[in-house]
Design a protein around this nucleic acid. Structure first.
Lengths: 198, 198, 198, 198
DNA sequence: CATGAATGAGTCTTCATTCAT
DNA sequence: TATGAATGAAGACTCATTCAT
């Protein structure tokens, strides 16, 4: 059933995985399509049977990983119904995913911020979807009367995500991990929780 | 008096300014040295009288702007002695600088995160200097007994900076400005202040 | 049978041949890689599939031609066992090869003497191999008791080769050929033979 | 009297001397006009007050040195009237000049052979003048009835010069000097003398 | 005469993409 | 589908030469 083109599926996935690895190591502009091909153990030309061009590979990498993050986060949050607790879960999950997928973290750190043409639009939607998960939590808390009404979710969601993201950047760039996922997520969520609670 | 080499100074500065503009518009890798030269109204070769290579231009842009930000922020903070108020000033100033220097904001968003070779080291020091300004505020507040002892400044400074930075990214990427500097800085600093105060 | 990679072989050889032609006409430094490509009827980039860089092309031209000369000379000499006659053959063959391969003669005249980096070492070995062919003849003559013992082969081989080489230079530079290969080689070998014989 | 522009004379000579040094070390094409200027302790632009262009510098270097060689050789030969002895003197003097002016030797080895445009003509005359000094010796010997009539001076002069020149090349390239000027010149001239004498 | 900052034409080389097999 | 040799457009950088001072 899914086997009729499983070989192709394989190759498609293999290229994305290879690209993620290569992009993480060298950055998009310093990565060579031929390197990705080599890493994926396919011929250079084969890449172009699955992707329109180099940009398209990045987009695919991006979509693949972003969807993994979103579905993963949603799954974790669905286990719980307390907005306060959800904030803690979000923080922990986010940092945890980052540390468990360093390659993606490296790529995301840079590419999400590329101001270049195509990324702007492609990125925004998925990115917004992810970040809005947090916005819903805030709104939920406000609806339940636990969080301040005055909190602007548009600002708060970015502030919270930015805080976590910066922590991730630190880990990615310094490659050190002086602060554990547990401590970091706890401190950050504690600060936020106090900041948003009535 | 200061005119004895003002022409060279001029040209050096002109190139940096031009580079900032071009990098902001196209990103480092999509910028052409010849474009920078054109923008600076000098010949292509002239660039190489002032800079070792294209990378060197970026580094210079970076150092120039980063030092402006640091000295500016320090100046603004020196006017006040209340840690709580300082947090507000930091938030406001940071967002304000970003909106007033969109070009630098664009460049910083991307290039500071480039994981490529030379940037890693160059960036880190200045970046740390800047972010540590906030760490000192927290520590000051702790010493004065206003802020919780349990706050880990290493985490808090990143969380706070990240929150502001993400707000900046939003402005840069979306080019919209639904939230004003005032509202954004107030919301973000308020949340943090409540998060760190005893 | 030999066709399995004859196309690549072809291209490699074609580039070398084209380079020889272009180098001969303009000299290495005044030759453009794009000219070589054009002459070889390949794209500029194709050159770099077969050669590391421009220098590498020169080295390959050099090795190709030098090996031809050496094997050719050895073949001709193997037909004869008289050292005196061998001197005559060497002289004739050398001048003959030069006139039959003007392009190589032009390149060799200049590039073998380039004091630049890479050539120094590359050239020396092949060059020494070639010139030593003559040294063996002298030594052979000495062993057979025909040539003077006092002849220093290190000096004699260079003197003889230099004499022939200068004749070749004359032909190359003046493009005239007032003296025939036959007369030139005879006169030069005669002088040498009398000079070295007991 | 000659002082009114002795400073200019100075500079002209200084540049030639500097150029000789730089050309010797790097070769013409790898030498930079700015290096020559630096070596001569003048400004880059100053070079162009004394020379039309880079090529012109080489020509001047060439003419200066070649004239020195010719006048020097003639002076030495004028002391003696025996053609046989003159051959010995020529050989010794040539090799001696080469070893005493390594820089010129380096330049001459390469540049005399440059097939490029301007050199072809410029070089030829001086070069011929020099080499003809030897032709005269042969002819003189033939007139005196000492040397064989059958010797073709056009060939012999090149053979002899070539022999010496090759020895010079060996010293220049290998930078070793396993054979002394005395031994080398003696062996080479002895061989030739026997080769040309009746 | 002297300077040296400025110029910009010129070239090697890279690498995303194509296409014949 | 898969290959990988071939393409050629594009760009960073160099350096001989000029010219305003």
């Amino acid at each position: 059933m899914k086997n009729n083109h499983s070989k192709s599926e394989d190759k498609h996935q293999r290229i994305i995985k290879a690209a993620l690895k290569v992009f993480a190591k060298k950055g998009f502009y310093n990565s060579r399509v031929s390197e990705i091909a080599k890493e994926a153990e396919v011929a250079d030309g084969t890449i172009y049977l699955y992707f329109k061009n180099k940009d398209d590979i990045l987009i695919s990498v991006f979509e693949t990983e972003m969807m993994k993050m979103i579905s993963n986060m949603k799954k974790e949050l669905s286990k719980c119904h307390d907005p306060v607790e959800k904030i803690r879960i979000f923080a922990f999950q986010h940092l945890n995913m980052i540390t468990e997928n360093q390659e993606w973290a490296e790529v995301a750190q840079v590419e999400l911020r590329q101001s270049s043409k195509f990324m702007r639009e492609y990125v925004k939607d998925h990115y917004t979807d992810y970040i809005n998960i947090f916005a819903y939590i805030i709104r939920e808390g406000q609806e339940k009367g636990i969080f301040k009404e005055g909190i602007n979710t548009g600002i708060a969601k970015r502030a919270f995500f930015g805080a976590l993201d910066e922590m991730g950047r630190y880990w990615v760039l310094s490659r050190s991990k002086r602060y554990s996922v547990e401590e970091s997520s706890e401190q950050i969520s504690d600060m936020f929780i106090e900041g948003v609670m009535k």
